[in-house]
Every structure is written in C-alpha cells, then in structure tokens.
Design a protein around this nucleic acid. Structure first.
Length: 373
DNA sequence: GATACGTGGAA
DNA sequence: TTTCCAAGTAT
C-alpha cells in the first residue's frame, strides 16, 4: 500500500484485518470482558514484556488486587512483591500513584477520556490509546512496537521507525486506517497480527493483509523495520556475598532511587580492574557495612542481564573475619543501603529481590548446608 | 533525541 | 553462547 491509496483501500485493509482477528484472537484473561481496571493492569504489565509471562502475573495480581481501591491502599511492598521478576519496577509505583489519583480526583471511577487517561502516572501515548480503545472503544489509535513493525512493512518504510518522520507517518496511517466504532478490535488486531504473523521473522504465507503489503511485493519484508541505533551491551563482573552469622544471613535494602529502588539484596558490587573476586567482596563489605569478612566458599556464578548490562555475578559464602577489626554484627555501618536485616531463608523468601539475587536465594534454599537457616 | 529502567525467551 | 528484543514511560 501507498500513503496516497484511496480510502476504500484503507477500509479494505481494516476489514481483512478485523475478519482475521475475529477468528485468530487468542483467548486472554483480560479479553473475557473488557473492564477498565483489567485492561489497565494488563497494558502496564505487558509493557516491554512477553505475553506468556504476563498472563500468570496478571491472574495472580487480579486475585490479590481486584480493583483500583485495593491498589491505592495496598502497602507498596506488597505490590512490589507481586511484581517481582517482571522488571521495570517503576511501573508498580506509578500504578499505585495512578490508583490514588483515580480514587481522589475521579471518585474511584476509571476516567474514560483519552486526555484524562494520559494524565495518569505511568501512562504514555500508547497505553492511553490502548485503554481508551480497548476498555471504552473510543476511536483513538494505540501504536506500539507491533503496529510500528506491521506498518513499516505494509507501507515499506525505509527509515528507522523510532525516528520522528517515520513515527509521525505511522501514526497518521494508523489513524486513517482505523474504522470508526471498531477501535477496540482494530487496535488489538493490529497488535495480534504483529505478535502472531508479522513477527521479527514474518510468516507472510499466513498473513491476512499480504495483498496490501508493499515490502512483500518488493520481496523485502524481512528488511523492515529498519533498525535504529542500539545501545552497546556492557559486560560487567560483579561479586555478591552471603554473610552468615549465628544462623542468619545479612541482607540490605537498596536506596529509593535508581535501579531496583527499595529492593533487598546481598551486598556486593563491581570487580575493579586488577582485583580478584575475593578481594572485591572483602572490599565491598568493608565499604558498604564496615564488616570484615572472609570468603569461605564460592557458591555460584550467575549470569543475568539488566537494561544494557550483561552481568556475571560471582557469589561467595562469607563469615565474619575474627582476625580483623570489624563493625559489630548488630551495628553495621550502612553506606549503600537504607535498611538491613539478619534474615532467615524464610524471611528472604518474603522480601523482594532483583532476579539475580533471587536466583542466589533459591540456590541457598536448595543447599543442605543452609538447611537450618 | 538520548538515556535509564529488567527480564527471560527465541534464534 | 551471544544477540536481539517484547503490548513503553519518564526525564
């Protein structure tokens, strides 16, 4: 298709897409009946998150927090725990902030006007459009990564879709294609097509709108969308220490800003150039707690990534080094945290940990050496 | 516009 | 194993 195609061409595209969606739509829990609260939670949860992972979290969340009021009044730690493992934890805090705005400024009723939805914390242009259309069937677009991919192929857009010219064009094309009164199904159909058919490796033989697709006609759908500049991945070697003293494990709470804000963790940090992991963990504990520690065992090497880092996490079992001056166990000198605890494994299970540290905690729980803890 | 912000699945 | 990236937002 071309931008200057006649309107009936756009309409035919929309009809083919809607007919396909009616048959191919996946039965997802938030599609059983469209409630504003359910659509909101699902949309926030699925931001930059794969569908399969989202479903389990969604069902547990709805069980635990069935409405806006329950989110507004819940302890933040409970919300965070329910979100543990999903990533982008700022979403949780924004969720609660938005819930409180809805309770206080909208009488507890989820707003239906696009501008009012957009004004809520954590809701940007995509999510505002998604809620306004999917929950309320308002005639507004919802352009996410799927829609950008689909349209970059259908209209053979040869510049990166995130750059302004292409982004503006895609939104104009989406608005022109959207059939009045059908935004709920149309927006979901476009995303569903991107998720099931027009994927990174497109399955054009199964595509209901193949006859409209310019890049397919040119034989280059796999060359669309044109990738933008990507951030380099930074490899990082990190140490983490499980300090055991009198049957308890030392954990600390991260600051309220930055990555994993407010999360609990085993102390540690980056291995500096020229440093062994053992030297690094001793230094980190001295810096962060003023404890003198002695590594007694290497527990694991855990690989995980976060945002633009690829981390190798070297994990050590530690004890207080009686031969060195150390802060007393009950009075660490906390410099990198807002709180600390001498915890049992059951305590740790109930805290919220970053994924890498949660893996370490799970290893401890399965290790007979820690059976009494 | 660039960057911070997580995680695990897929290839 | 490494790389890419999935229903983005805030700053």
């Amino acid at each position: 298709m071309h931008d200057n195609a006649p309107q009936h061409e756009y309409d035919a595209f929309a009809k083919a897409l809607l007919d396909w969606f009616a048959a191919a739509r996946r039965p997802l829990p938030w599609r059983e009946h469209y409630t504003p609260y359910g659509v909101w939670i699902s949309e926030i949860m699925l931001q930059q998150t794969q569908m399969e992972r989202g479903v389990d979290y969604y069902l547990r969340w709805m069980e635990r927090f069935p409405d806006v009021a329950s989110v507004a009044t819940a302890p933040e730690a409970d919300l965070l725990k329910a979100w543990e493992g999903l990533g982008y934890y700022r979403r949780v805090r924004n969720l609660q902030a938005a819930a409180r705005v809805i309770m206080e400024q909208h009488d507890g009723i989820f707003p239906d006007l696009p501008d009012a939805i957009r004004a809520l914390p954590g809701i940007g242009p995509y999510t505002a459009g998604a809620i306004a259309s999917i929950a309320f069937n308002h005639d507004v677009i919802a352009v996410d990564g799927n829609v950008e991919r689909v349209f970059s192929r259908v209209f053979d857009i040869d510049t990166p879709v995130r750059e302004k010219t292409a982004a503006t064009r895609i939104r104009m094309l989406t608005a022109r294609t959207l059939p009045k009164g059908r935004a709920r199904d149309f927006n979901q159909a476009l995303m569903e097509l991107g998720a099931l058919v027009c994927r990174k490796k497109p399955d054009c033989t199964a595509c209901p709108v193949a006859r409209f697709c310019e890049s397919l006609h040119l034989g280059i759908p796999h060359e669309r969308p044109v990738p933008g500049r990507r951030q380099p991945i930074v490899p990082l070697d990190v140490v983490s220490g499980v300090l055991v003293h009198e049957g308890r494990i030392f954990v600390q709470r991260r600051p309220d800003t930055g990555v994993w804000a407010g999360f609990w963790e085993f102390p540690g940090g980056r291995i500096e150039p020229g440093e062994t992991p053992e030297e690094a963990i001793i230094r980190e504990f001295r810096e962060e707690t003023d404890f003198a520690v002695r590594p007694t065992d290497k527990l694991a090497v855990i690989r995980h990534g976060y945002t633009t880092y690829r981390v190798v996490l070297h994990c050590y079992l530690l004890h207080i080094d009686a031969s060195s001056r150390s802060a007393p166990p009950e009075h660490p000198v906390i410099t990198a945290a807002t709180d600390h605890r001498w915890a049992t494994l059951a305590d740790i299970d109930a805290l919220t940990l970053p994924a890498g540290h949660r893996k370490l905690a799970d290893l401890l729980a399965a290790d007979l050496r820690f059976a009494g803890l």
